Amino acid sequence: MELNSIKPADGAKHYKRRVGRGIGSGLGKTAGRGHKGQKSRAGGFHKVGFEGGQMPLQRRLPKRGFKSQSLKYNAEVTLTALEALGLAEVDLLALKQAGLVGQIAKVVKIIKTGELTKAVKLTGIGATAGAKAAIEAAGGSVA
């Protein structure tokens, strides 16, 4: 292989379409724009979702609800998952390393789903009232 023989792969490059260059090109006269109307004219275009002056779909439909962007930093861990983890002391870093919460999680809360038999000490992690009672009943603590 020589530097002067290197070529791009087949189909990687293609010629720019030249419109309005006569009948033989297949794109003469109207240059592929059809006849008349806003789309056929120079500078004649409109924003996304424009429906020719008719009330656009996104404005016709009713709006409901709101999803907070801060929710992605919150995470939940069940008592079952805590039992399976099998650590005596649990903090945010331990949960992230175990893969129970996402890496971007900032606030973690233990929820009462399942059973807990082992004593677990939580540091820097919240718990619901029911989960806190279950953890303390198993001999653990929530700090």
Rank of each mutant, 00 (worst) to 15 (best):
A127T: 03
F50R: 10
H35F: 11
G65H: 07
L92R: 15
E89C: 09
A127L: 04
A81P: 01
G20E: 14
E76W: 07
L100P: 05
G65D: 11
F66V: 03
A75N: 00
R64D: 12
A12L: 15
P62K: 10
G11V: 06
E115H: 10
P56A: 02
T30V: 09
A119Y: 13
A12M: 13
N4Y: 14
G53P: 00
T78R: 02
V142P: 03
T80F: 08
A31Y: 11
Y73C: 00
V48P: 01
G65N: 14
G24N: 15
V101L: 11
E2Q: 14
G139R: 06
T128K: 02
G114I: 12
K132P: 01
H14M: 07
G28F: 13
S68A: 11
Y73A: 04
K106D: 14
E51D: 06
L79G: 08
V77S: 11
Q58F: 08
K29S: 09
R17A: 13
M55G: 01
L95C: 08
G52P: 01
K39C: 01
H14Y: 07
V107E: 15
D10T: 12
E76L: 14
A12S: 14
K47T: 12
I135A: 00
I23W: 09
I110E: 02
K109Y: 08
G44A: 07
G22Y: 15
V142K: 08
T30K: 14
G26C: 09
G28R: 13
A119D: 05
A137R: 06
V77D: 10
A84P: 01
T113I: 12
G140H: 03
K47W: 05
G139T: 10
Q69D: 12
Q58T: 03
E136N: 01
A81C: 07
H14Q: 15
F66H: 08
L3N: 06
I110V: 14
I104L: 06
G24D: 09
G28Q: 10
L71S: 14
G53M: 00
M1K: 13
F45W: 10
S68H: 01
A94P: 06
E136A: 05
G99C: 07
G32D: 00
Q97M: 07
S70E: 12
L79V: 11
L57A: 08
T80A: 13
F50K: 03
L82H: 02
S141D: 10
D91N: 11
Y73N: 04
E89M: 07
L93A: 09
K109E: 12
N74K: 07
R18K: 11
R60K: 09
G53E: 00
V108H: 06
L116V: 00
I23N: 14
P62S: 15
L92K: 12
R60G: 04
G102F: 05
A94K: 00
V77F: 11
V77M: 08
